[in-house]
Amino acid sequence: MKKWDYILIASLTIISVVWIIIILRGQSSGEKVIVKLNDKVIYTALLNEDSEYLIKTGNDYNNLVIKDGEAYIDDANCKGLDCVRMGHISRDGESIICIPHSVIVTVESDKDNNIDFVSE
């Protein structure tokens, strides 16, 4: 390895670690779960109440589970199942995204609700 290899790897690592820390610090725990399909809100739920919701369009589905203050997709029929592998979310601004089905599940805090609904 040459000198510039180390500089490249070190600077890329520092940039991404700092970036991740900034993202994580900006997140307080959220209260609401919002499901968007093709960028339209189709479902909202409270994070502290256990529930299940089947996001369905035609033959596509993603099953959203809210349990113990966390939201996750436990089953879906998209290719690769990335949305299932994205795991559990509970912090404000965190999201699960299923690109093939254009589904976004976001956790938001109650405070921003008005602003968010105006901007929809």
Binding site: L12, T13, S16, V17, I20, I23, D39, I97, I104, T106
Partner: peptide
């Protein structure tokens, strides 16, 4: 492709 700007949050993970 998706128009989801939030995906940028995922970039540092993919850089690592």
């Amino acid at each position: 492709v998706t128009g989801i700007v939030k995906l940028i949050d995922y970039l540092p993970v993919l850089i690592i």
